[in-house]
Amino acid sequence: MKILILGGTGSIGSAVTADLVAHHHQVIGLCRSEVSARKLSELGGQPWRGDLRAPSSWQAALAGVDVVIQLASTFGTDMAVVDAAAVACLRAEARARPSNQPLRVIYTGGCWLYGETGDHMACETSPQRPIPAFSWMQDSASLLLKDPNLNCAVVHPAMVYHKDGGGVFARMLDQAAAGLPLEVWGSIHTRWPLVHRRDLARAYRMLAEQAALTGHFNVAAQSGIPVRDILAEILTRHPHDGAYLVRNRKYVMFKYGAWAEGPTLDQQMRAEKIRQSCGWHPEVADFTQAAF
């Protein structure tokens, strides 16, 4: 298939690009800089120079593609507006296509759209209570899913980790390596659903390949791991005195921004739907067995 990726050289997108190429798909990736274009080429994709903020710069890339995977965000104050413009561009492309050639879109939501779940394990039919910083994702996903001209699946990744910098573990890994107290956001009892980046990439590829699968899809290998267990594992990998600091939600949001509410949420998330519908299963079922 011919697949356009928005965000194909990011932390998750680079793994998705590599997995698609490995399975013989033709990948076109939106690239704003020469550095990202070179990275995409090295991954086996075809760079398309443009800017997510300017849909007119990549609209022509939609011609003839079978699937669009939206993984990109500016992560700035304009991210809601930029995403809305990108969604409008995709919907316009879909309207212009013959009815027997619908555009397949894989859109990215996230576990933080469920809000704090506590002892409840969120599934795809659970009510969404997104944190304000990312509530726009819920709006965009709804527009795409309801559009009769589109064929859409929305992926909700768990907290993602990997060996190249650690992903969601990066901050604590850097502090451990520097001999600093590990900073815990929320509580050591806060639970994080987890998935390895490589397994998440496989989920995107499998959903891209199976156009009959629509709706919401959670992707998690572990439903909810207490932060204390993550701390303990990091401390087994680095010489450290075990000191840590607990930062409450108000503190981290003031210091790092509204998005920082996400890691303070006590969450659990199940992923039976994607396991049953397309045979996805995590190759890394336990984070303690992975390199990061």
Rank of each mutant, 00 (worst) to 15 (best):
C278D: 08
R198K: 15
T17A: 12
S56W: 04
L144Y: 05
H238P: 00
T9K: 12
V82Y: 07
S14N: 02
T108H: 04
V68K: 03
A85E: 08
V227Y: 01
E233V: 02
W280K: 08
F254P: 00
C31G: 05
H196F: 06
A37N: 05
P132C: 05
Q70I: 10
G44K: 09
A153Y: 05
Y107P: 02
A88V: 07
Q276A: 12
P263F: 01
S135E: 15
T117S: 10
R38P: 01
Q289R: 14
S14D: 03
D199Y: 05
M121Y: 03
S187G: 13
Y256I: 03
D164M: 07
C31V: 05
P127I: 13
A122N: 12
R197K: 12
D199F: 11
I5A: 06
V81T: 12
G166C: 13
P181S: 06
R91D: 02
N248C: 04
R53P: 11
P263L: 00
P239N: 04
A141T: 11
V35M: 09
W58H: 07
L40K: 08
I28S: 13
P148H: 06
L90K: 07
Y161L: 06
T9M: 07
Q138S: 15
V154K: 10
H281R: 15
E124Q: 06
P282R: 14
G44A: 14
E93V: 05
V154S: 12
Q46Y: 03
Y204P: 08
P239H: 03
P263Q: 02
R275W: 01
F134A: 10
L173Q: 10
A96W: 03
D119I: 09
A221D: 09
H196Y: 12
V16E: 06
D119G: 12
Q210S: 09
S140G: 06
V21A: 08
L40V: 12
I274Y: 04
A86G: 09
H162W: 00
A220H: 09
N218V: 12
C31A: 09
A177V: 08
L194R: 09
M269S: 04
C89M: 10
A201P: 00
L200Q: 11
G179Q: 03
G118P: 06
L182G: 05
G262F: 02
V65F: 10
L180T: 10
L52T: 10
G50I: 01
A291F: 01
I131S: 05
G215S: 08
R202P: 02
F254H: 13
A290H: 05
M121V: 15
G76N: 07
A15H: 13
M1Q: 09
H23D: 08
R53F: 09
I230V: 15
A243M: 09
D174Y: 05
V87Y: 04
N100W: 03
A170Y: 00
R275M: 14
A88G: 08
A203V: 13
M253R: 04
P157V: 04
G186Y: 02
V227K: 01
G45W: 00
N248P: 00
